[in-house]
Amino acid sequence: MAVIYSKPKSLADLQLHYCPGCTHGIIHRLVAQAIDDLGIEGTTIGVAPVGCAVMAYDYFKCDMIEAAHGRAPAVATGLKRSDPSNVVFTYQGDGDLASIGMAETVHAAARNENITIIFVNNAIYGMTGGQMAPTSLPGQVTQTSPYGRDTNTTGFPIRVSEMLATLDGPEYIERVAVNNVKNVKNAQKAIKKAFENQINGKGFSLIEVISACPTNWGLTPQKALEWIDEKMIPYYPLGVYKDRSAEKEVK
């Protein structure tokens, strides 16, 4: 019988701990696939965040380190500066990257640190049970915004990709989603490019992945994927926000 699908080799053969319908699993696969395609498992070091992906260090078969909440870009900087021939990536959620770790994120981008960041934006704190995130939408009901996110008292969501694209530092910023086949295919291309950029010495690449959290959104997996199209993408439009090398080619 023909094998039409197999797990990427750099993804450990374990049962993931993520909730049913959560799209972390897809994103893990895309990252591992990129590592396989580029043949870099033996030279890659991954940085796991604090959040739902905290145990990602078990899932990727490359060397892994677990960082404190928000500090993954700083840890990645240390790893990369120690041996620039290695490929270093971080895998972070929205609370980790855009709230407590915003300074580390912005400054790693400003330095054009030659690392790859996979930023999973599902507009909520998952692991701690569904609190408001810096990317939670206006009006979004969470455990800590039980009446809906009130922008008068909690401010507005942060569009990380747009914000980082204003900096001169970073090489490549793209927002993708993983809620349908077409989007997953685009995400695969973007993630692979983010690793390629690092291998080619181009610098900081961040892929923001719009991801589903059915459990904490209180939706079925199918409804959650639809909610991405209906609510998330209108606020967080997909696309390339910065691609320095492509800009140069155009000029």
Binding site: I45, V47, I65, A67, A68, R71, A74, V75, A76, T77, G78, L79, K80, R81, S82, D83, A103, E104, V106, H107
Partner: peptide
């Protein structure tokens, strides 16, 4: 030599190098 954006970042960069 790297001047980090904060002491918090600096010690986490140290953690990264130390891990290697």
């Amino acid at each position: 030599f790297l001047q980090a954006e904060s002491e918090i970042s600096a010690i986490n960069m140290v953690y990264g190098v130390a891990a290697t």
